[in-house]
Design a protein around this nucleic acid. Structure first.
Lengths: 167, 167
DNA sequence: AGTAGAATGATAATAGTTATCGTGTAATAG
DNA sequence: CTATTACACGATAACTATTATCATTCTACT
């Protein structure tokens, strides 16, 4: 059976907007030399739901609702590909499973160590007052974990343009 | 064979200072209700070498030099115990293995995505100018990853004092 | 529509970590 | 200083997260 390339699960009213997003995604795939498959479309759409930070397994459960035959391996491979071409980023959290973020605008995260909820925190250029003002009332900060990621002087010469591939 | 409780691998000259560190460690174990075993002493001493950020496996390789019979499982269990009682913390890095930090003073990290070197960066209260001044010349920042870890409002009531147990 | 190369799905393999359990050891009491 | 007991250790199995393999299927292009 041949599957239609479409944003399934979306009703007619917002079709125009969804088609636009699909076209954007198709363009990004073309740039990156990736096939714009149904699986990748669905996974990308789920990933870009605002404010969500998916693990591969949650992503798999969600994607199965639309493509019941999808494989967990496909989800992992897709996620890895998306990371490599810069469509998503990985959060650095103290949990065993990776968490993904399709919000590429610079921002930070507020993580509840109890329920593991992750909330976005807009970039504040590290201004402590500004940052504190953005932390929701009631959130008890236990610690900040700031990782400055980049390329050290010793490595700068070695691998010029490979360094944007995280992991 | 009965093993002497001692900081093996340390020569006589600095014995006084090492004994002091051992006594400190013994005290912390007593507080936490932990037995001050030879294995834990050695692992803790390795972990507290300044500027180092060990993975469990590296820690195992290092500890074997002093206790050839030590088990990898012991290293993992010890590390987990140390995390639970707050003797060490886990770094949040985009790599598969956990990295440990026995430096409990608030500070951040500078991570080279190429060679995976991790350098300490003293706490700067999120002042961007101060922070930038501390980044070594030649280090090319690709991104900041700030995770604010704590307890969200919803969870504040539920698990009052359990929240310092990370992971 | 036909074709080449890439992606998928099923599953095996691997890496990192944790659990199990019998033996050994540290802390405490006598 | 020795005996006891609960805890810790070591060996290994088990488990979880992730990646590799490979035959089949699909996408992109002609």
């Amino acid at each position: 059976m041949r599957l239609n390339i479409s944003m399934s699960g979306v009703e007619g009213k917002s079709k125009g907007r969804e088609s636009k997003r699909l076209e954007q995604f198709r363009g990004r795939c073309a740039e990156a030399g990736l096939a714009c498959t149904h699986q990748r479309q669905v996974i990308y759409r789920i990933l870009t739901e605002p404010g969500q930070h998916w693990t591969p397994d949650d992503l798999y459960q969600q994607a199965r609702k639309e493509i019941s035959s999808i494989s967990l391996a496909t989800v992992y491979k897709t996620v890895k590909t998306f990371r490599e071409v810069g469509l998503v980023r990985e959060l650095n959290l103290p949990y065993s499973q990776q968490h993904l973020d399709a919000n590429l605008t610079p921002h930070h995260h507020l993580v509840c160590l109890t329920c593991r909820k992750v909330m976005d925190l807009s970039q504040a250029e590290f201004d402590p007052a500004f940052l504190k003002a953005r932390i929701p009332h009631g959130f008890q900060v236990q610690r900040y974990s700031l990782e400055v990621l980049g390329t050290c002087e010793d490595c700068a010469g070695i691998s010029g343009r490979l360094s944007n591939v995280v992991r």
